[in-house]
């Protein structure tokens, strides 16, 4: 077997194994189910209310999904990278031939699977709680899939860069929670902001929210958006630009992180951990 095919296979295997290990551990189960359970409980509470003829629960759902995706893509990725660096997972990968590419492939597999599952845990039960969700139709779900996928590609490289530059996992949380909070706050994903700050249109979160709303809400709801339109082309362009920029920039940061990983760095992490 050629090293290049084996590295892809090793990465995929490793990702698959680690996803299940995590998913089946107590901590992993809590992490996976906690947020969806809370969101679903909220949907349940508001399932009969309607606003201007649209189910209130349906109106809430795009915000939840955007939040889930942002959380997974940004903080999840940053946190996992910082953890792997601190506990020596990364260093071990570095000590293996082709270990680093296999590690990164595995990481991508785990991140995508986790994001996919956590979104499905909201969407699938959501279909039963919010009956009007079932009327979205095929084209709506196609839109949902591409917006989620492209949105994830726009966010995950940012998370990777944050994870690569911070010193510790707590730093990763600190550095990702602030941009996350700001983007979510100004992007009108939970309540229609008639006058959104213009700056929100720069960030991917606004467009992810808009894209998901365009997929799930009835056509007439577009009237509440800026310009009274779903602007699908702009959504694709902005998210695509973020994804392209991120995918161009992130490898450099990851290489730098990999180059710097050493026993002494890990030892420093261990000392930080045991002292705190």
């Amino acid at each position: 077997m050629k090293p290049i095919t084996s590295v892809v296979r090793l990465g995929l295997t490793r990702g698959w194994i680690e996803f299940w290990m995590n998913a089946l551990s107590l901590q992993g189960l809590i992490g996976l189910f906690l947020a969806p359970t809370i969101l679903l409980a909220l949907l349940w509470m508001f399932r009969v209310r309607e606003v201007e003829g649209i189910s209130f629960a349906l109106l809430m759902l795009p915000g939840f999904l955007t939040l889930q995706l942002t959380q997974e893509g940004l903080m999840g990725v940053a946190n996992k990278l910082a953890f792997d660096r601190e506990d020596g997972t990364l260093l071990r990968a570095k000590a293996l031939p082709q270990g680093m590419p296999a590690y990164l492939i595995a990481r991508v597999v785990v991140i995508i699977l986790s994001a996919f599952v956590s979104l499905m845990l909201v969407i699938i039960p959501g279909l039963f709680i919010v009956p009007s969700l079932a009327t979205v139709g095929v084209s709506g779900f196609v839109t949902l899939v591409w917006v989620l996928a492209l949105g994830f590609l726009a966010l995950a490289p940012i998370g990777a860069v944050i994870g690569a530059i911070v010193k510790s996992p707590s730093g990763a949380v600190g550095l990702s929670i602030l941009p996350m909070g700001i983007m979510i706050g100004i992007s009108g994903i939970f309540y229609p902001l008639k006058a959104l700050p213009v700056i929100s249109e720069i960030f991917p979160v606004y467009w992810i929210g808009l894209g998901i709303r365009s997929a799930l809400l009835p056509e007439m709801a577009a009237a509440a958006e800026l310009g009274g339109s779903w602007r699908p082309l702009e959504t694709a362009l902005v998210l695509g630009a973020w994804a392209a920029a991120g995918l161009l920039l992130a490898p450099g940061f990851l290489r730098r992180m990999a180059r710097r990983a050493s026993g002494s760095e890990m030892e420093a992490g261990r000392r930080r951990y045991t002292q705190s």
């Binding site: 506990d87 020596g88 026993g263």
Partner: peptide, 8 residues
């Protein structure tokens, strides 16, 4: 031979 503590 690396010194593990929490990894894997």
């Amino acid at each position: 031979v690396l010194q593990s503590w929490r990894d894997h």
